[in-house]
Amino acid sequence: MMTKKTEENIFKVLMVLSTSIIICGFLLIMGSVLIKGLPTLSIEMLTEVPQGGYYFGKGGGILNAIVGSLYLSLGATFLAFIVALPVSLFMNVYLINKNKLLNVIRYLLDLLWGVPSIVYGAFGFIIMVYFGLRTSLLAGIITVALFVIPIMIRAMDEVFKTVPRGLIEVAFSLGSTKSETAFKVFFKQVIPSVVTAVLLSFGRAIGDAASILFTTGYTDSIPTSLLEPTATLPLAVFFQLSSPIPEVQNRAYASALVLILIILIISLLARIISNKNNLKKFNIKNAVNKRFIYYKNIRNNYNLSYKKRRKSQQ
């Protein structure tokens, strides 16, 4: 017979074990990237484009990939934003009385979220071929935007869903149209979560390699127009790591380190903003709880007297 105590202990061990696996994994990844990348990381790497023979260990840096990645993910995030914001507002204000349709839309978006990014890459490639586009910053931006849009919509939607119905009803009861409700009231309430969703999506956009594999190409110069190909950090890691030369391989780790740092900064920002948001939410929640308790007391008193009444009736 297993006692409560052994059961408890087994679960405790399991929990400690799985937690340590996660932490160890994280430390191992960070550690190996740091050990191999940090010594190679230099001002030169951050501020110069590859010179001739860079991929055989000669001088230069990955500025082309850093700038390219920033261009690409800024462009894609912007493009995704101007699609995702209206869609999520539309879902939560215009479709407020269409529960079934909303469920279908959310399900589809979750499916799209789950589609591997290489599929978006392949899709982007088909479109490029169809329109006779060459590998370019623009093609990459469009592909990554497609990949990020469902993520951004659902990230916004999850928070928009929590806006109290009472607020929406109040806006409508004042005679607001749907667009006034959406943009003048609803949007003001959710601005912090919009910022968070955008930053999270930016993190996804800059880190993804598969969706840009066929679409952006790769070049040693910094792109000067949307129609030029561009280097990106994930692909810089990929190409340099494929080299047989150890120095170049180390540069791959240095590039990975740069990428990780950018993502770290972005998610830290997102964290800070959403914490501020949480803080506010927490206060609101507290206030609501207080109200709720007050209300519950009234209700309880009322129910008590109601029960008394019922008893006296019988």
């Binding site: 009472g166 607020l167 109040v170 004042l174 009231v185």
Partner: peptide, 27 residues
């Protein structure tokens, strides 16, 4: 919207609009 404008609504909990006091009235 015109029909709704003929009626002011006060709900169970106050739901001030997410703006300042002045704009809550001015809205």
């Amino acid at each position: 919207t015109n029909i709704r404008r003929k009626m002011g609504l006060l709900s169970q909990m106050p739901y001030p609009l997410p703006m300042n006091i002045y704009n809550n009235i001015a809205y």
